[in-house]
Nucleic acid binder design. Structure first.
Lengths: 145, 145
DNA sequence: CAGGATCCCGCTAGATACTG
DNA sequence: CAGTATCTAGCGGGATCCTG
């Protein structure tokens, strides 16, 4: 049935999966992408860092060490583990170039890029509304004495 | 300086906070909102459930038991804990009506509603792209033998 | 009904050390 | 450079019991 439009297919997919249901695979997928490191990795790979014109860097290849530097505080374990999971889920590609020493580049796939749009909004939201949240916490904590 | 537009203020906030930095408060905020239950709670409270016209239910008040029913599989502890954190951060309000038995309603604030837009995109993405991810996993696993 | 309070297990993040 | 391997402390999170 290739007669379905992509919009129809997406609507159908949404009917099949419902993250509100405990057993639904999309619940587990939601859990996986609702992760601090996933968010930051997607943001790093999807965003142009501005060093070469910040208009719209649709995708960006980064090396392992670049990522670990940009995601301050991430352990090698978490970085590797998260990258592997994202590769397995088809969100990014891992390309090994057999130089000496070896070079590994990570790059978003189209699928990863489609998620990046949403992920980026989350990260921006956190940065933009930090002040409001801090103020809210202060009044909440003061009230509870 | 109330001469700043809201767009300017947001841009400024984004400069002050950078979730890529380990010590930045926004990193911690990002971690908090990158959570399965947060996503589902925000989605539940922000979405109209379709029972009264699914065009655009901007906000929706729900009772504790309604939430626990809709978020299948959530424990009371996690539900209560997450709701408290979201209330503290100013994303939702908790209203107690002293009936017998007591009635408690949760409702998104404007701040919560602003995050809901982004959160909803994440949940929809997970449901819409589940098939692609599953297929990707299969080929990945098959390759690794 | 809407939680609060405890107990407790699992697992997983993070630190450390080693390698091709 | 780009990981892998191992260990452990800590806490996320579920189960259970209790209350206003």
């Amino acid at each position: 049935m290739p007669t379905l439009t992509s919009a129809q297919r997406r609507a159908q997919a949404r009917q099949e999966y419902d993250a509100f249901l405990a057993g639904c695979p999309s619940r587990q997928l939601l859990d996986r992408i609702s992760d601090k490191w996933v968010t930051l990795i997607l943001a790093a790979l999807g965003d142009d860092d501005g060093s070469c014109g910040q208009v719209a860097g649709p995708a960006r290849a980064m090396r392992y060490s670049e990522l670990s530097r940009q995601l301050a505080g991430v352990s090698q374990k978490m970085l590797t583990q998260t990258l592997r999971a994202l590769e397995r889920d088809g969100l990014l590609t891992r390309t090994v170039t057999p130089t000496v020493p070896v070079t590994v580049r990570y790059e978003l796939t189209d699928l990863g890029l489609s998620l990046h749009q949403a992920i980026r909004a989350i990260k921006s939201w956190a940065e933009e509304h930090m002040d409001e949240v801090i103020r809210s916490r202060e009044t909440y904590d003061a009230h509870a004495t």
